[in-house]
């Protein structure tokens, strides 16, 4: 079983991110579950959501306490939301920021935790591609780039299914850009002109 915790703020699509991650996981062949931890519907309020992947049907309803993966959609939550809390040894923490991993560890106040920290400028990527500060697709693209539970293709597929047309394509692009970013690969938007025609 793989357990994921997502931190963000109301309006950033945290709950949607958990649901989309579950959908992508299902496409990748997992049993899945997404659980939002809801409060009142207020823009900007801290929000947490959870996701689980497993090979057998998921039965438990307890929140994720020891995540294998943590996604932080808003770097201003590094201090208050304690994103490193409970992370399993060797876990993965992906943070939406233009800063680097040491900066994240310093601001999370939990520098000693045994986890890989990855940063991705997901908001910037979203603004460039989708035109809105909705970092979910980029965050999930980054996740696909650093873990084998989900594939980039599955992430792109679920956004295309949910938002048919231009918005879905823009989100798919955001995922691809973030995917390449965390793998140190070239930005997929910068491609030889010959390939653009059939893209």
């Amino acid at each position: 079983m793989t357990q994921i915790r997502i931190h963000g703020r109301g309006g950033q699509g945290v709950v949607t991110a958990a649901e989309m991650l579950a959908r992508a996981g299902f496409l990748a062949g997992h049993e899945v579950q997404a659980i939002p931890s809801f409060g009142s519907e207020r823009t900007g309020a801290p929000v947490v959501a959870y996701c689980r992947f497993a090979d057998v049907p998921l039965r438990t309803r307890e929140p994720v306490l020891e995540p294998d993966v943590v996604l932080v959609q808003d770097p201003t939550l590094l201090g208050p939301a304690q994103p490193f809390a409970g992370v399993r040894p060797g876990g993965l923490v992906i943070v939406n920021t233009t800063e680097d991993a040491p900066w994240v560890r310093e601001h999370a106040g939990d520098g000693e935790v045994d986890a890989t920290v990855v940063t991705v400028p997901a908001t910037r990527i979203s603004l460039d591609t989708v035109g809105l500060p909705k970092p979910s697709a980029a965050m999930l693209g980054a996740y696909a780039g650093r873990a084998d539970h989900v594939t980039l293709a599955a992430v792109q597929q679920v956004f295309r299914d949910r938002f048919p047309g231009r918005v879905g394509e823009a989100n798919a692009t955001a995922a691809a850009v973030a995917y390449a970013h965390v793998r140190g690969e070239p930005d997929p938007r910068i491609v030889p002109s010959a390939e653009v025609s059939h893209a």
């Binding site: 958990a18 649901e19 959908r23 299902f26 579950q33 997404a34 659980i35 939002p36 998921l58 309803r61």
Partner: peptide, 12 residues
């Protein structure tokens, strides 16, 4: 059905 725990959870 349990509010949020079921209503807002996503399952297969």
């Amino acid at each position: 059905m349990d509010g949020f725990v079921l209503t807002h959870a996503t399952d297969v």
